[in-house]
Design a protein around this nucleic acid. Structure first.
Length: 905
RNA sequence: GGGCGAAUAGCUCAGUUGGUAGAGCGCCUGCUUUACACGCAGGAUGUCAGGGGUUCGAGUCCCUUUUCGCCCACCA
């Protein structure tokens, strides 16, 4: 083996920057991110390509918004998808991961509007066309930024299939779907009370409203009766909406007000007269039991108004200021200001009886954070019930599994309580609603194409509906629109339905549930088989990461500091299924240390291969230690597969970590040194070859989790031994039970126990690691441990730094050793002259306490008839053995105590 | 009001058919041993939130209480 190591192997630290970017480029350029079938077809291997198509694994990325940069939550989401993609790619499936971005109507429009405002402009002065161009440029810029970030994270997605929710093709799909739903009668237009964002001046869907608990005031306002001196006091949190009141309602059962029903009250601050009505909705126990009804500005009031044919008086402009229906001094001021002013006026004029502090839920716009106003306007809606019912009926038989399973409930709950979906937005950035109005007749046409281009409508003039569609109206089609649906092309055929969706729980309603409905409605299939719900990434104090708190973590900064693999490994290792993920920048040193460890082990092995001739795995004779190591790796392989099948990323990361650091580095590589420092070239050669082969296997197992560094190290393995292909397209190790050496595994574990006992004693008495001492092990010849010690004699000596082990059947106590008892074995160490007997006595007494405890527990169980009758016989036997063993230990430990006490210093 | 989740070492968390409690970080001791001091070897640390139940046996299953977090729905 010629020593052809890269210079960086000299470094004890991994220089991530030197290879991460270049590996990404190499993978992408080599077509590794393409589906296997594409790669084979490109090579003209069509038959094999056809076979490859039989089993696919596909993921569509939850498209990030083109508003800004990716945060650590995106990082986690991306990493998990990439682990899945790489894992399944290595399993030989026809894998594709579709990248893409979301035009994010309201969010992006907001961001760009802010920029424009800073320039002293407004979208109105720019005009719609200019504004949209401007937003498009912003979107394009951020699509590139996002792509770069995904590349840095190692995302192995197929960039030839990149998508954008606002691309021409996907826009066509959106129009197509709109028309289909319209034709089915599932889309309607009408005047309704909707959630209105006064900041963006658009309607929102119910799901886009975030409720927060707010402490405000409850105002008790007196409404004088018209025909008497009596007053009716209502309690309200919104005195400013008094101008929109068209009735006062009381509960029909409420005897206090029964006499008033049907009479009129005068609206304070105005001269309007409104009726007192009875409606069962009114809660007699809240406030005064009298409720002012403002149909235009409260959902329930609107419903009550409809029942009683009340007038609907809208008092707001679209920007949330009061309009011309209100008294002069209120016009043009904001709701907030109007509330204060109304309260003041009411007080001045003697209508305000009292105020009380009051906590209630207030809706806010999820994008701009401004309070939502219920606002009467003409909007487009999708009738969701039929879609939801269909989905509820079929989604389960079609097999959709949530991981963790409990999120199914969240999803089902929403489906079962579905409400119609307001899909029109009064924005400029988004898919225009595909409805045109005849400029002369006003007659409307719902069409996939501009009617001006349709011969049937030649000569007529149309204008398109001004509104755009909710962003989610394109997102809910994402799992199939990205493949080219409704076209019946090969991508749809090969990759749809997709395999797994990886997303956060915050968008189960917005997105996951709607995708299922769309999938079933338009493709008669669930759009994905599994849904993996990621936890949220929070700071160490458990707070959500946010710009205002400044506690956010930029994944790029972490990559800069520790490397992409460290970010990936830390997140996947720390991930838990139950709770959110708590991290700060320093957390990532965990992954970094692991990679450094792997790196240094690699360095060490590579340095040993100077004059060694590579050989095949099959030609290497294995000793017990080798078999134990292989056994560990097989077991880990099995555990990784099991964990991955259940989306237990952390489980897989844990077993890999433990195996690499614990079994491999701490034990196997350490023991290998025995051979590596040998004078005999044969011995050295065997060991180096073995290490290289095992190292290769480990790197292959690690690849989905540590793609960059595993690929880099793998590339340094001599050609004769390393995989023919790059790791990214190498076959993932399959668990093979026949390769298990369980017997060797157990024997090695016994050896480890002996080593630990000796090391522990050495350390406990602060005996220098260099100091040698005599070691006699007392064990019966027919005890299985005897043969283990014989077999591993050299290993034990090497690991404990002792010269030799003397085995005996009965020990001659004349040389006053320190004794350690393990099972049926007594280890006698000649260190009495180096240690403090008091210390040893303390330790022995502690041990006696421990054994006493175990004995007590055993006795309790073994004296219990119920236990003997009910417990599994193997468990009973185990207890019996433990009891006997502990008994012997006790006896022997006491003997040792006596010996130490009696022995001369 | 309804639902969900969490509570295990100082901190962050594993602990998937019930059978003698684990890791990492931090802490303490020893070691610059020719891969790694982002290291090695060793060590200390727990009323598994409280209570009750099922069971021979419960961190694990059931009930209940408390605290924290989240979601949904709401009384203006």
């Amino acid at each position: 083996m010629k020593k052809k190591l890269s210079a960086q192997l000299l470094d004890q630290r991994v220089n991530y920057a030197s290879f991460e970017e270049s590996w990404y480029k190499r993978w992408n350029d080599s077509g590794a991110f393409l589906p296997l079938s594409d790669r084979l077809e490109q090579e003209g291997r069509t038959k094999e390509a056809d076979i490859a198509k039989k089993e696919h694994f596909s993921i569509v990325i939850p498209p990030p918004n083109v508003t800004g940069k990716l945060h650590i939550g995106h990082g986690l989401n991306t990493i998990l998808q990439d682990i899945l993609i790489r894992y399944h790619r290595m399993l030989g499936k026809n894998v594709v991961w579709i990248p893409g971005t979301d035009h994010a109507g309201i969010a992006t429009q907001n961001v760009v509007e802010k920029i424009i405002e800073q320039e002293g402009n407004s979208r109105e002065t720019l005009g719609r066309e200019m504004f949209v161009t401007r937003v498009a440029a912003h979107a394009e810029e951020h699509r590139n930024i996002i792509r770069e970030q995904l590349e840095k994270l190692g995302a192995s997605c197929d960039w030839t299939r990149d998508n954008f929710t606002f691309s021409d093709r996907l826009s066509q799909v959106v129009r197509d779907v709109f028309v289909r739903l319209w034709e089915k009668g599932l889309i309607y237009k009408g005047h309704y009370l909707v959630n209105w964002s006064t900041k963006s001046q658009t309607a929102l869907s119910d799901d886009e409203v975030e409720y927060k608990s707010v402490t405000g005031k409850l105002y008790y306002v007196q409404y004088p009766l018209v025909d008497s001196d009596a007053v009716l006091t209502v309690a309200t949190t919104r005195p400013e909406t008094i101008f929109g009141d068209t009735a006062v309602a009381v509960n029909p059962e409420d005897e206090r007000y029964a006499a008033y029903v049907g009479s009129l009250v005068r609206l304070p601050l105005t001269d309007k007269k409104i009726p007192i009505i009875a409606d069962a909705h009114v809660d007699t126990s809240f406030g005064t039991g009298a409720l002012k009804i403002t149909p235009a500005h409260a959902i329930n009031d609107y419903e009550i108004g409809k029942r009683h044919n009340l007038d609907v008086v809208n008092i707001l402009n679209t920007d949330g200021t009061l309009n011309d229906t209100v008294p002069e001094e209120f016009r043009g001021i904001s709701v907030q200001e109007a509330r204060g002013l109304a309260a003041q006026k009411l007080e001045e004029e003697g209508f305000l009886e009292k105020t009380e502090p009051h906590t209630h839920q207030v809706g806010y716009c999820y994008r701009t954070g401004v309070p939502i106003e219920p606002y009467l306007s003409e909007q487009w809606f999708v009738k969701m019930k039929p879609l939801a019912e269909q989905a509820l009926q079929t989604w389960e038989e079609q097999g959709l599994t949530f991981f963790p399973e409990r999120w199914k409930n969240t999803y089902l709950h929403w489906m079962n309580n579905i409400r119609d979906w307001c899909i029109s937005r009064q924005l400029w950035w988004g898919h225009r609603i595909p409805v045109w109005y005849n400029s002369e007749t006003g007659e409307s046409i719902v069409s996939r194409d501009d009617p001006h281009t349709i011969p049937e409508h030649a000569g007529k003039k149309f204008h398109q509906d001004e509104d755009v569609l909710d962003t989610w109206f394109s997102s809910w089609l994402w799992p199939f629109s990205v493949f080219g649906w409704p076209e019946k092309n090969s991508d749809v055929e090969n990759f749809y339905p997709t395999s797994t969706l990886v997303t956060g729980y915050d968008i189960i309603f917005f997105w996951v549930a709607r995708m299922v409905m769309a999938g079933l409605e338009f493709t008669q299939q669930n759009p994905f088989r599994d849904v993996y719900i990621t936890p949220l990434v929070r700071d160490k104090k458990g707070r959500k990461m946010s710009k205002s708190l400044g506690n956010g973590i930029d994944p790029l900064e972490i990559i800069e500091m520790y490397g992409s693999d460290a970010l990936r490994f830390t997140l996947s290792y720390q991930l838990s299924q139950g709770t959110d993920l708590l991290v700060d920048a320093e957390s990532f040193s965990f992954g970094s240390r692991f990679i450094t460890k792997l790196w240094n082990a690699s360095r060490f092995i590579f340095r040993m291969m100077d004059d060694v001739v590579p050989c095949r795995w099959e030609d290497i004779a294995l000793d017990s230690t080798d078999k134990w190591m292989i056994n560990c790796i097989e077991a880990v392989t099995n555990q990784v597969h099991t964990a991955m099948a259940e989306y237990q990323f952390n489980g897989a990361a844990h077993v890999l970590y433990d195996c690499v650091w614990g079994d491999y580095c701490d034990w196997y590589v350490e023991l290998a040194k025995r051979h590596l420092y040998s004078e005999d070239i044969e011995i050295r050669s065997r060991m180096v070859n073995l290490l290289l082969h095992i190292h290769k296997r480990i790197l292959t197992l690690l690849h989905p989790f540590l793609p960059f560094v595993s690929e880099e190290i793998h590339s340094m393995i001599p050609e004769a031994i390393r995989h023919e292909t790059e790791l990214i397209v190498t076959e993932y190790p399959i668990f093979c039970e026949d390769l298990m050496y369980n017997e060797e595994g157990m024997r090695f574990a016994t050896m480890q126990t002996i080593v630990r006992a000796i090391r522990s004693t050495r350390s406990e008495f602060s005996i220098s690691p260099k100091k040698q001492f005599r070691c006699v092990i007392e064990v019966l010849v027919d005890d299985p441990v005897y043969s283990i010690i014989v077999a591993f004699q050299e290993e034990i000596c090497f690991l404990c730094n002792i010269d030799a082990i003397e085995l005996c059947q009965t020990f001659d106590y004349s040389f006053t050793p320190m004794t350690r008892i393990l099972d049926n074995v007594r280890i006698h160490l000649d260190i009495r002259s180096m240690v403090d007997d008091e210390k040893e006595l303390q330790r022995l007494h502690k041990q006696i306490d421990k054994i006493t405890k175990v004995l007590k527990q055993c006795e309790q169980k073994l004296n219990n008839k119920q236990f003997l009758e009910h417990a599994d016989p193997s468990v009973v036997q185990q207890q019996q053995e433990l009891y006997e063993l502990s008994h012997t230990h006790m006896k022997q430990t006491k003997e040792i105590v006596e010996m130490v006490k009696g022995a001369p210093e």
